[in-house]
C-alpha cells in the first residue's frame, strides 16, 4: 500500500515455458506450489478448527439464539454474543464516522493542496501511524488519552451535545474515560492511515484532463474535488472504507485497555462495553469450563467470518476499481 507497485501490463499475459523434462524444475515447481497453497490451507484450517472447537456451543445455543442473546454469565454457563456484537458494531461504526472525514481531508490535502515538496513527507508521516503497534495505541490511550477524555472532552460533550433532544442520551452518564467513546477515538486514529492512503491513490488515478476541463469552465478547486475527483474515485474510496472497517473490527489491543470489558448494551457512549476481541483477550485464558471456552471460540468464529466477508467485499471493490482505471505508466 505504501508504494504503488507498477505491474508491467504486457507482462501478465506472457506465460513462461515449463521444462517438464528437468526433474529439478518439477521439484521446484512442486515446492513453490505447495508453499503458495499454505495460504489456502491456513484459511480453510482456521475456519475448520474454529467450527470444530465451537461446535458444543453451536449445538447448545444455536446460531440465531447465540447472536441475539444478551446473556453472558460464566457461572450459569449461559452465553450469547449480543453484547459483544453490540460493542463491536458501535465502536467500529463510531470510529469510521470520526475517521472518514479526516482521512478524506488528508487525501484531498495531499493530492490537491499541498505543494509538491510536502506531498511525500506528509503522506509518509500519516502512513507511519499505521506502523505503530496496536499495543502502543493501547497504553497511550489508557494513560494519556483516557484521562484527557474524562477530564475535558467528555464533560464538554455532556454539557453541549448531551443537552440536545435526540442525541442527548448518547452523551450522558459518568465521564470515566474508560468507555466506548475513547475506544472509538483510538480506533479512528488507527484506521485513518488506511482510508487516507487508499483514497489518495484513488484520487491520484483521476485523469488530469477531466480535472482540467472542470477548471476550464471556471470551477473552484473545491468544486473540482467535490464534483469530479470524489465521484470519479468513489469505488476506490468505498474499498478503502470497507478495508478500514475490516481492520477496526478485528483490532484488539488498542481497545482492550480502554473499553472496560463490561458485557452490557448501553445507550450512552460514556459506558464501558465489550467487543468480541476484548472479550477474547480478557477471558480466553480464564475460561474454566468446556462450554465457556467453546463459546469464546464461537465468538472468534463469528469475528473471522464477519471480517473475512467484509474484507472480501473491500478487495472486490478495489480490484474492480483498478481494472476500470489501469495505472498509467
Amino acid at each position: 500500500m505504501a508504494i504503488a507497485i507498477k505491474r508491467e501490463a504486457a507482462d501478465v499475459k506472457r506465460r513462461p515455458p515449463i521444462f517438464r523434462r528437468d526433474p529439478l524444475d518439477i521439484l521446484f515447481y512442486a515446492v513453490t506450489a505447495l508453499a503458495a497453497m499454505a495460504v489456502v490451507a491456513v484459511t480453510l484450517g482456521i475456519f475448520y478448527i474454529l467450527v470444530r472447537e465451537s461446535y458444543p456451543a453451536i449445538k447448545k445455543f444455536g446460531v440465531f439464539g447465540f447472536i441475539v442473546s444478551k446473556e453472558w454469565d460464566p457461572y450459569r454457563e449461559v452465553f450469547g454474543a449480543a453484547t459483544n456484537l453490540f460493542g463491536t458494531a458501535v465502536a467500529t461504526c463510531l470510529s469510521l464516522i470520526i475517521a472518514i472525514p479526516v482521512a478524506l481531508g488528508i487525501a484531498i490535502f495531499v493530492t490537491e493542496i499541498a505543494p509538491d515538496f510536502l506531498k511525500g513527507p506528509i503522506g509518509a508521516a500519516i502512513e507511519l501511524l499505521a506502523a505503530i503497534p496496536s499495543i502502543i495505541y493501547g497504553i497511550w490511550g489508557f494513560f494519556t488519552l483516557a484521562p484527557i477524555m474524562s477530564a475535558h472532552i467528555e464533560p464538554f460533550l455532556m454539557n453541549t451535545l448531551g443537552r440536545l433532544p435526540l442525541v442527548g442520551p448518547l452523551f450522558q452518564g459518568t465521564p470515566m474515560g474508560i468507555d466506548l467513546l475513547t475506544a472509538s477515538v483510538i480506533l479512528s486514529i488507527m484506521i485513518i492511515p488506511f482510508t487516507a492512503s487508499i483514497s489518495r491513490d484513488a484520487f491520484n488515478l483521476t485523469p488530469e484532463i477531466v480535472k482540467e476541463s472542470a477548471y476550464a469552465v471556471g470551477a473552484t478547486r473545491w468544486e473540482v474535488v467535490k464534483n469530479v475527483v470524489i465521484p470519479y474515485s468513489r469505488l476506490g474510496i468505498f474499498g478503502g472504507v470497507a478495508l478500514s472497517l475490516g481492520r477496526a473490527l478485528g483490532e484488539t489491543m488498542a481497545v482492550a485497555f480502554v473499553l472496560g470489558n463490561n458485557h452490557q448494551i448501553t445507550t450512552s457512549l460514556f459506558d464501558a462495553a465489550a467487543t468480541i476481541t476484548v472479550t477474547l483477550a480478557n477471558e480466553f485464558t480464564e475460561a474454566s469450563t468446556k462450554t465457556y471456552l467453546s463459546s469464546l471460540f464461537y465468538l472468534a468464529l463469528l469475528l473471522f467470518v464477519l471480517s473475512f466477508a467484509i474484507l472480501a467485499v473491500a478487495k472486490i471493490f478495489l480490484v474492480r476499481y483498478e481494472k476500470k482505471n489501469p495505472r498509467e505508466q
Binding site: K13, R15, P16, M37, I46, G250, T252, L280, F304, S307
Partner: peptide
C-alpha cells in the same frame, strides 16, 4: 503467472493480511 489461480491466491493472501490477529491466536 497470469493464471487464474495466481489471481485468486493473491487475493486470498490480501484478505488474510488483514484478518484479525487474535483469531489466529485462538486457532
Amino acid at each position: 503467472r497470469g493464471k487464474r489461480i495466481s489471481h485468486y491466491v493473491s487475493m486470498l493472501a490480501d484478505i488474510m493480511v488483514t484478518v484479525p490477529t487474535i483469531v489466529v491466536g485462538t486457532f
